[in-house]
Design a protein around this nucleic acid. Sequence first.
RNA 1: CGGGGCGUAGCGCAGUCUGGUAGCGCGUCUGCCUUGGGCGCAGAAGGUCGUCGGUUCGAAUCCGGCCGCCCCGACCA
Length: 517
Amino acid sequence: MSYALPSSRDPPMSDAQKSGGNANANAPKKGGNDNLKLPTRTENFSEWYNELVKRAKLADNSDVRGSMVIRPNGYAIWEHMQRALDDMFKETGHQNAYFPVLIPERYLAQEKKHVADFAPQVAVVTHAGGKPLPEGERYVIRPTSETIINRSFTNWVQSYRDLPILINQWANVMRWEMRPRLFLRTTEFLWQEGHTCHATEADATEETLRMLDVYERFAHDFMAMPVIKGQKTESEKFPGAVNTYSIEAMMQDKKALQAGTSHMLGQNFAKMFDTMYQSKEGKKEYVWQTSWGVSTRLIGALIMTHSDDQGLVVPPKLAPHQVVIIIIGKGDERGPVKAKAQAMAADMKKAGIRVLIDDDETKGPGFKYAEYELRGVCLRVEMGPKDLEKNQVVIARRDAKPAAPGERAPKDFVAVDAAVAFCGKALEDMQSSLFKRALEFQRANTFEVNSIDELKARQDDGFLLAHWDGTPETEKRFKDEFQLTTRNRPFDLKQEPGKCVLTGAPSNGRIVLCKAY
RNA sequence: CGGGGCGUAGCGCAGUCUGGUAGCGCGUCUGCCUUGGGCGCAGAAGGUCGUCGGUUCGAAUCCGGCCGCCCCGACCA
């Protein structure tokens, strides 16, 4: 599979769209409708993504530039993500809390690197109560909450007995963006931010890596998305962190997407806010801290990992609806079908399956097939009079691929009594098969590169494992000359000394280079 | 902020070059019909042509300003 990116000169419209207006104006149209088709991934990946988000009713642009309306179909995915993550946070001992959206401007200034790096992205409240606010009393809308949370931590922490403090917050944050994209980069977005305080550096490091593992597990088990876990370079670190770690995923266009980050903050914020505890020995010590987060960007990652030219594909564990039962038939035929469907749906609910019945008589079955494929329902049960005669239903899996291009993906014929069990099994299969498929894709598009020529030849090909001399200058050259950014230094990669792929200078290991979102 | 494209019905577009009654497809509504891959027929509703100004007997169309959106870069989760 190849999803070559179009050049910037290519028109943004698909051929289908271009032929739409005028041709239809002259020829009275019969049958198909160009409007209904998505642009394809090979044709224009970003158009495909944008259209898919809108047509699958995941989100809309709003009149506020960079802000989005998350629609029920999209928000349901987020809710499932939240639930799974929240459970994992609870299992690891964290508690939820909530801190204010407005942060006194002066708080940010207390961590130098923090304020310097965030300043261009921060929205400031300059007026309130009908009056301008004095310079020293202005607020920023949180871009992240390290500062204001540390304000509280300073009050909460007295003794080593108060540690560790393990807090998580579900919240919206705002970072002014020049080029917003639905889910991937919006000015306002939803996320969770974990914030913890520890007595020792070792404890904080352990926590940082523990939560990175949680993210990896979530990506694998729920999103069916393989990720590369590793350490960020100096220049890619979170402003104010000692170390930043990330999970990096590969999208179907072979670009990388940072899917989650975990930071070891050291004592940087503690020192700015005097967050101190008294040790067993009676000494005053600064706490060691971590923070970690994932955002609604994950929904974008999910889309670009699994979806196809028919529309959304979502792993069952996160799907808003796992099964839709479509009732087929006319007039009196529908009654018995509907009764059977309702009984089946009830059994499915008992089995913990999120099921939907479509009994809308005003739309034909074909329309519904296409529509639910677009919307990402995992399984479709087709049930009509002919099926009932044979005591069977027809089941179509959203991730099924046609045997040959142009053909339709095969469907299963399943005895009515076996349908619920079949669906349960199919959902499990689909969950693991999506992961497998994505993992194969990632592996097939990961390469070692050992020379400038290879780097050049491979720059659009996916994850490139390359030796790097560790200097920001070389990092900048990767970016300027090849549009490649350093994603992270993978934990799972055996690190051996070598020579920097660009400069030939000594390197102590390989990093992942990739074009990135 | 730079480079490209675009604002005409709910959506997708034609009409603009060459000024002269506001169009097409989809969707919506009504009725009939139909139901196993985006049904069919008939009828209907729906638009200050982004905005402000200029030219003209007359502007969606020509000229100028402004606003907004999308794509590609620079910033970023």
